[in-house]
Design a protein around this nucleic acid. Structure first.
Lengths: 173, 173
DNA sequence: TCGATCATGTAATTGGTTACATGATTGC
DNA sequence: GCAATCATGTAACCAATTACATGATCGA
């Protein structure tokens, strides 16, 4: 799902501001999705113009005003269409994987550094995912929890896979 | 690696034309990388302008002329820099994974359809990878073969993971 | 007083894709 | 005669990012 699809999805439970959406993207959804303000605000504007969401301005005295967006019926309907549209092929463009193909150009030490850097990235993502575990388990429904577990397994498999590859590489040359 | 990085890498073994590069991308490298003509030709022009590669025009009588590009010393050096630059974090933006989070909106049948569509995509990629196996095993060096195996394992793990998730989803109301 | 958090937004840039344009040759 | 392969290229578009701009409030 793109920014529009994700926002529509998140707006189902409750009305949210762009700022709150960003937070959700960078905390709960950080592993598999995430958009910056530069995507979120223009998307909200466009969707409001198209009648998928409606906006209510909340005047605040001690903080900047907030624009609270709510899903309309039309938006709800659009989201269902999006969910039922053909599943797009994933791309897994791994910088690590593309570099392996040219490892003959590097010293054994450099190869190990790249592998380790990649493992560090995976570990960091796993750590992040794990740190949001309790939060997710509270708020999430059964499907969302399964998505969470899916992500964890994926990262663990990837880590194993990289480690196995690095071991073979170490034996090489 | 981006288009420029990949092209520089592929140009190490031998001189190639844009057309030949495209072929390599869509056959041997289809799983983890791949660029269209719209990326390749402009990249080649730019890199020639920057002295990373040199061009030789081959006049053909029975076919269109070919522009054969060869890596220069400067290009070789640049490629080494690229290989040693910090590894970028991967993104695994899976359409399937993002949809799971909103599966409560769908009927059990629709959920299964999405899961199956995703499995089909994975299976198709595995099939493609397998069909290039002999070709890759002939031409590739040891590291490239490891990259190939890495890709196969990744897809198989992913498939297992999706299947497990779908089984849990099926049990869910 | 300084950094974090709240809050919205735009402009420039990136890095790709798709569709289009051109045109000869070869094999079925 | 028609499709595929060879071969190069451009223009329009897309979906995102980054950096910038603005500015108040609150806690250490």
């Amino acid at each position: 799902l793109d920014a529009q699809g994700m926002i529509l999805g998140l707006l189902q439970g409750k009305s949210l501001t762009g700022y709150e959406l960003k937070k959700i993207f960078s905390i709960s959804f950080a592993f598999f999705s995430g958009f910056s303000f530069g995507s979120i605000y223009p998307a909200l504007r466009k969707m409001e113009k198209n009648g998928l969401i409606s906006m209510r301005l909340e005047i605040q005295s001690n903080a900047p005003n907030r624009k609270i967006y709510t899903l309309t019926d039309k938006g709800q309907q659009r989201f269902r269409e999006i969910l039922r549209s053909p599943v797009r092929s994933f791309d897994f463009k791994s910088d690590f994987l593309s570099r392996i193909f040219f490892f003959s150009q590097l010293t054994p030490e450099e190869r190990m550094e790249i592998g380790q850097a990649y493992l560090d990235i995976i570990e960091e993502k796993l750590g992040h995912l794990d740190s949001t575990r309790t939060e997710i388990e509270e708020r999430a429904d059964a499907f969302q929890r399964l998505g969470f577990e899916f992500g964890i397994r994926l990262l663990k498999d990837l880590s194993k896979n990289v480690k196995a590859t690095m071991k073979s590489i170490e034996k090489q040359a």
